[in-house]
């Protein structure tokens, strides 16, 4: 069901031609409305790929599994680091698990450069 956008946090990526979430969505589903906030054209059309969630600099977006498929309420949030990603997942019973791993190689190092 896809992106739930917290309009208290969202500023529509003011100053950018296209907001980060608009840029990220492979389905052209997100847009910044005349209120200056991000919106989704059609909840039903989201693939739950979470690209927008990863890209949002203000942590204003979360993906929610449609209730018809999953119970209320679980949460999964990514924190994008340099060459790594950390995910924090909380299930419907309040159990939280954290995952962190490398998502990019240090190319400068690999090629003998310094960092």
């Amino acid at each position: 069901m896809p992106p739930i956008i917290d309009h208290k946090k969202c500023n529509g990526c003011q100053g950018r031609e296209e907001s980060f979430c608009e840029e990220a969505c492979p389905g052209d589903l997100l847009y910044v409305g005349s209120d200056g906030k991000a919106h989704c054209h059609a909840q039903r059309d989201c693939w739950d790929c979470m690209s927008c969630v990863k890209m949002c600099p203000r942590n204003a977006i979360e993906t929610r599994i449609p209730y018809q498929l999953g119970y209320h309420k679980a949460r999964l949030m990514p924190i994008m680091g340099k060459n790594s990603i950390t995910w924090k997942c909380t299930d419907i019973n309040g159990e939280t698990v954290t995952y962190k791993y490398r998502n990019r190689l240090e190319i400068a190092d690999e090629q003998g450069g310094s960092s």
């Binding site: 739950d48 498929l69 999953g70 309420k73 679980a74 949460r75 999964l76 997942c89 299930d91 419907i92």
Partner: peptide, 10 residues
């Protein structure tokens, strides 16, 4: 979101 799905099933 599959990890989120499992969490939503507890």
């Amino acid at each position: 979101s599959f990890v989120l799905f499992l969490a939503s099933r507890g």
